[in-house]
């Protein structure tokens, strides 16, 4: 019975992911859920498969997300480069940037006990606000950590990491800071890009930390090639 449940969940997740990827454009406008409170399931599904391809536009949707760390800020205008390096560069928990956590693993940050969750985003963007609200965690004045592993079946040269985040964020690949988005930012696809990178054949870890005071919080991330086209021939996994 348990096996059957997993099969159904995997089929459902595949269907949802396929439907989400097909809805990149909306010929008659993107339907809204006017007057409806969004639910966690609108934005995330549990990870069931071993590895996931990016969507058709290259956005990586498979992530391990840590429940929000309490970091009060009344305004997002304080997110200067120095501030982000200081606050997002701190070590908040053991294994930060070095060890891929497991789904359900708990860490302690100050007086908070926080849990990692492995999710596939149903949309191109990872809606951190709805991750927090869906788990009934605090939504404002927070730091989110996210990580995933990408698998390359060949060397990828001259690619760039492309990120949009709301609000400021820092991104690391294999433990090295690769991109910073400072200031009071809105999430914009391809807002900032890294310098040209080579992703060698094999596995690479991506870590990100997104900070937000008031307002919505989310991010979208993909790699683009030397011609600016999305990199889709990679896999994302959380194991």
């Amino acid at each position: 019975m348990k096996h059957l449940r997993h099969i159904i969940a995997a089929v459902a997740a595949t269907f949802i992911a396929a439907a989400a990827q097909a809805q990149t454009t909306y010929p008659d406008g993107m339907p809204s859920n006017e007057g409806v409170k969004p639910q966690l399931a609108d934005f995330f599904t549990p990870v069931t498969s071993t590895a996931a391809s990016p969507d058709a536009e290259g956005f990586i949707r498979r992530w391990l997300l840590l429940e929000p760390i309490n970091k009060p800020n009344r305004s997002n205008t304080v997110f200067t480069d120095s501030y982000l390096h200081t606050e997002l560069g701190k070590t908040y928990f053991k294994g930060q940037l070095t060890t891929t956590p497991k789904d359900g693993q708990k860490v302690t940050v100050g007086e908070q006990e926080l849990t990692w969750h492995a999710y596939d985003a149903t949309r191109y963007n990872v809606k951190l606000f709805r991750f927090a609200s869906g788990l009934e965690k605090q939504v404002y004045g927070v730091i989110f950590f996210a990580t995933t592993i990408i698998e390359c079946d060949r060397d990828l040269t001259d690619v760039r990491l492309a990120v949009g985040s709301n609000s400021g964020s820092i991104w690391w690949i294999d433990g090295k800071e690769t991109l910073i988005l400072s200031g009071d930012r809105r999430m914009v696809m391809d807002d900032c890009m890294s310098s040209r990178l080579t992703l060698t054949k094999g596995r690479h870890t991506i870590w990100g930390a997104v900070i937000n005071g008031p307002g919505m919080s989310d991010f979208c991330l993909r790699f683009v090639d030397a011609k600016g086209q999305p990199v889709t021939n990679i896999k994302a996994t959380v194991k």
Binding site: T25, Y26, M30, G164
Partner: peptide, 18 residues
């Protein structure tokens, strides 16, 4: 179309921040 999609000068949908 008035219902979109509204794209910017490099083809980004305003639903993606364009």
């Amino acid at each position: 179309k008035v219902t979109g999609p509204y794209l910017d000068n490099v083809g980004r949908d305003m639903l993606k921040g364009g």
